[in-house]
Amino acid sequence: MKILLATDGSETARAALDFLLRFPLPEGSEIDLLSVTDHHHLPPITRGDLTREQRQAIGETERAVRQDAERILAQAAERVRGAGRPGSTEVRIGHPAEEIRLAAAEHGAELIVLGSHGHRGLRRLILGSVSGSVLQYAECSVLIVRPRTEGQAPAPDGRLRILLCLDGSAPAQKAIELCAGLPLRGRAAVTLLTVMPLITLYRQDIRQRLSWHWQEQKAAATADLEKAAAIIRPTAEDVSTLLREDADEAGAILAAAQALGSDLIVLGHKGRSAIERVLLGSVTGRIAAQAPCAVLAVRD
């Protein structure tokens, strides 16, 4: 698997690297490292009215920024090499989210990894603008990592607790295949979760639950969960399933992650249209913003 890890040396970026190095990646995976300096942080060198001294000062600032980024990358690269993963390093200057997306496309990355916030992000309040933008516009899967909070202990057996969310969509199917391709045996416990959306407006849920259509959907969802569990079991023996009925799909997933002490939520990212995002909101976006753990959004 070809992976691109974006880092700015912040605490969350270091947590992203820690998480990635602990993650059971497929054999032969490569980790490329990228650091992007936001061009808005540099003075505009193209202005014609600058004196030579001013131009020199700006050039020095840029060199210093670049050197700082290279230092951050060198530290990360050492750890990546130490973990036996080959890969390149690259510094870019530009719009961070856009540069990360472009670099991922140029590197042929199947997965972008980044922290939930950079240096400037309001940690744990909302999703940082860079990670939010990468999540929305990247053409490949995106793993957003949050530093572990106090009271959030790792599993006693050291295994990764993965919550894989299924909704019958093509990206969710891709998420199943991705998990089935990871060496999870003895290293992870996987819970497969499907949330059936209830309509509680005017208590339609009472009627909805009684209908044959709902019972059929429930039976189909249970069968799909079992089918997915059968696909994953050869690579991860500890697989369980959960079926929830809830009006708030994202809320139910977050509650399950909290209750299970999950380290990672994996879900298919459907990429809703602009109208659908306005009307329904983005389940993935909300989970990435509010999850107590890392979130892997798998693209079709």
């Binding site: 309509i199 407006l201 005017y202 339609q204 909805q208 329904l280």
Partner: peptide, 18 residues
């Protein structure tokens, strides 16, 4: 309006019968 909200939500959430 109540029927319209319920129906549009139901359609989006994959419950055509409702």
């Amino acid at each position: 309006l109540p029927e319209a909200f319920v129906s549009v939500m139901a359609a989006y959430m994959g419950n055509p019968g409702l």
